[in-house]
Computed example of a mutant assay.
Amino acid sequence: MRTSSASRPYAFSRHALLATILAATCLAQARASELSALWGAYRGYHNTTLAYQTDPFWVHDFAHSKLDLSLEGSVGQVTGPSGSDHQSLWHVGLTPMARWWLTPQSGIELGIGANVFSGTHLGDKRISTAYQFGDSIGVFHRFASTPWSLGLRLTHYSNADIKRPNPGQDYLQLRVAYNFD
């Protein structure tokens, strides 16, 4: 007999522990480049995330721009509309991020990664699997002569139709980051 994750209160602990160990292993040898906080919402759902981004592990310089790749580890909480059951879930993620620096301070970022959520119900949505892919695209600007940057990011979580229903979750996020360089 199978039990749902709602009837297994410690199910997320195992999944979160495994995801955290995987993320920590991948990020352990990497030097932190940036720490960022993201706040976002869409249609009554909210997402608050803390992210750690490594120094780039690959860089290509073009004539007037630069492309780099790094890893982003994140932990966050998504919240459903107030008054709904299953109001919030925690998530842990690991995402390779590509940044195309169009100027020395500004650019576009794109990432597709894996996330583990603490359950499969959020507000009125049943997301079916605790494993969700996270796709992000955004713009950012690093302020000259400061370690601070500001950005706007659109993030979509989905299980890629591994199991149905797959309603997905979208968040338009404000991103504030501190660079350690």
Rank of each mutant, 00 (worst) to 15 (best):
Gly119His: 03
Val139Ala: 08
Arg31Tyr: 14
Trp90Leu: 13
Gln87Ile: 11
Ser7Thr: 13
Gly123Tyr: 00
Leu69Glu: 10
Gly151Ser: 07
Ile112Arg: 11
His156Asn: 00
Gly73Gln: 01
His141Trp: 00
Ser36Ile: 11
Phe62His: 12
Cys26Ile: 11
Ile21Leu: 15
Thr54Trp: 02
Pro167Asn: 06
Cys26Met: 10
Thr129Ile: 12
Thr103Phe: 06
Val78Ser: 02
Ser82Asp: 10
Cys26Asp: 14
Thr49Tyr: 02
Ser145Asp: 07
His141Ser: 03
Leu17Ser: 12
Asn166His: 07
Thr103Trp: 08
His91Thr: 04
Trp101Ile: 07
Ala144Ser: 08
Gly76Ala: 10
Cys26Phe: 13
Tyr131Ala: 10
Thr155Ser: 03
Ala130Ile: 06
Ser7Gln: 09
Glu109Cys: 09
His121Pro: 14
Phe133Cys: 14
Asp181Gln: 12
Gln169His: 06
Val59Met: 08
Trp148Asp: 02
Thr95Asn: 07
Tyr178Thr: 03
Lys163Trp: 14
Gln132Leu: 02
Ile21Tyr: 13
Ala114His: 03
Thr48Gly: 05
Tyr42Glu: 05
Ser7Trp: 12
Leu122Thr: 05
Glu34Gln: 10
Arg142Leu: 06
Trp101Thr: 03
Thr129Leu: 08
Arg14Ile: 14
Glu109Met: 11
Gln132Ser: 01
His64Ser: 11
His60Arg: 12
Trp39His: 15
Ala130Tyr: 09
Asp170Trp: 00
Gly168Ala: 14
Leu110Val: 12
Arg175Ile: 15
Ile162Trp: 15
Gln132Asn: 08
Leu71Lys: 10
Val78Asp: 01
Asn179Arg: 03
Tyr45Lys: 03
Ser70Cys: 04
Gly44Asn: 06
Ser65Ala: 15
Pro104Cys: 09
Ala23Leu: 12
Pro167Leu: 07
Ile162Tyr: 15
Thr49Gln: 00
Ser88Pro: 01
Arg2Asp: 12
Asp61Ser: 07
Ser7Phe: 12
Asn166Gly: 03
Gln87Lys: 13
Ser136Tyr: 03
His86Tyr: 02
Leu18Tyr: 14
Trp39Met: 15
Tyr52Pro: 05
Ala32Leu: 13
Ser36Gln: 13
Phe140Leu: 00
Leu152Ser: 01
Pro165Leu: 06
Pro9Val: 02
Ala177Pro: 09
Phe57Ile: 10
Gly83Trp: 01
Pro167Met: 07
Pro104Leu: 02
Thr49Glu: 01
Gly113Pro: 13
Asp124Phe: 04
Ser145Gly: 09
Thr146Leu: 08
Ser106Val: 09
Arg164Cys: 13
Gly107Met: 01
His86Arg: 01
Leu174Ser: 00
